[in-house]
């Protein structure tokens, strides 16, 4: 029983450790929203052009999830001054509002919504602090960004350093930080993990050790837990059986320490009994006669299966 208690205690400890090791909430971390404002360019002189060949300010949205996301019926809101907010309702019925997984879409802040779905009804002013938010159809704020006044020069954007992550930076200042409309802010041009393995574990020993450690840990955990569950289960079964027989606690303990009879013994007894029961008759001579049975009727040749019913008027 002490072992059982130990097993239960170790399981409880494992649960506590598991909860304690849960990922802590990081201050300032994005909410669970799948759609994020990813980059904003406020003064466009030589940057990206819209379909009309115009250089307008733009707001880039990023679908952080690994599934499609439709921004139709969402609202893009903008404000320079508290209490004065412009809202743009993203129309339904345009297939382009469906953003593929981990992809981007641009909205042109040119104040000319008549030019199409992706042209909003407000303009951005870099000389004032600017707040932009995106709301879902139920007017729930999904994501927002506040851009301080006068931090963006011409053709500079305010962008997340890595798509979907929290750190924002000014882009377009030097050669290393490009403005990236409608594409990744951070370009993955190599498989970092694989390169790490190629450089640091060229012969694969590190992978073998770490992976085998994980495989062993997983199965070791199962071993420990099912070892404990098995002991509890055996103890419980014996106890229940003993109670059913009306044995006292002392007698139960005694019955538990007697050990179990090997399965082979029961199998041998069962087989012997089976043979004995089956062997009640002498072997007799038998004659097997097969006669052809002639049956005139069969459901297969019934007319009801071959004729269609007459239509009822």
């Amino acid at each position: 029983m002490n072992k059982n208690k130990f097993g239960i205690l170790s399981m409880l400890l494992a649960v506590v450790v598991a909860f304690a090791s849960c990922k802590p909430a990081v201050e300032g971390e994005e909410t669970g929203s799948k759609i994020l404002i990813n980059e904003v360019l406020m003064v466009n002189e030589t940057n990206y052009q819209d379909d009309y060949g115009m250089h307008s300010a733009w707001v880039e949205l990023f679908n952080k999830s690994y599934g499609n996301y439709n921004v139709a019926s969402h609202m893009l809101k903008f404000s320079n001054t508290p209490g004065d907010t412009a809202s743009y309702f993203i129309p339904k019925g345009d297939v382009l509002t469906l953003i593929p997984p981990r992809q981007h879409t641009l909205f042109w802040a040119d104040g000319q919504p008549e030019r199409g779905t992706f042209h909003v009804n407000f303009l951005l002013d870099p000389t004032q602090e600017t707040w932009i938010g995106i709301y879902d159809g139920g007017n729930k704020l999904l994501n927002e960004v506040t851009i301080p006044a006068n931090i963006l020069a011409v053709d500079q954007s305010y962008a997340r350093a890595i798509d979907g992550e929290n750190k924002w930076e000014i882009r377009g200042e030097g050669t290393s930080k490009y403005v990236t409309p409608s594409t990744n802010n951070f370009t993955l041009d190599k498989n970092v993990k694989m390169e790490k393995f190629q450089v640091q574990d060229a012969n694969g020993i590190g992978m073998a050790i770490s992976a085998m450690a994980v495989v062993f840990s997983g199965l070791l955990l199962l071993f420990i837990i099912f070892g404990s569950i098995g002991k509890v289960s055996t103890w419980w079964a014996l106890r229940t059986a003993a109670k059913a027989k009306g044995l006292s606690d002392e007698e139960t303990k005694e019955s538990m320490t007697k050990g179990s009879t090997p399965g082979e013994v029961f199998a041998a007894i069962a087989m012997a009994m089976h043979e004995l029961q089956e062997d009640v008759h002498d072997h007799e001579d038998t004659v097997l006669t097969i006669e052809k049975v002639e049956r005139r009727y069969s459901p297969w040749n019934s007319k009801i299966y071959s004729l269609r019913e007459l239509p009822r008027k």
Partner: peptide, 23 residues
């Protein structure tokens, strides 16, 4: 496996084949 959980470790040990071939 449930009746003799220590046999699980043999299942883990045989996975060395994967990482041997990997190397």
């Amino acid at each position: 496996l449930i009746s003799n959980p220590k046999l699980m470790l043999i299942g883990a040990a045989a996975q060395f084949g994967i990482f041997g071939a990997y190397m």
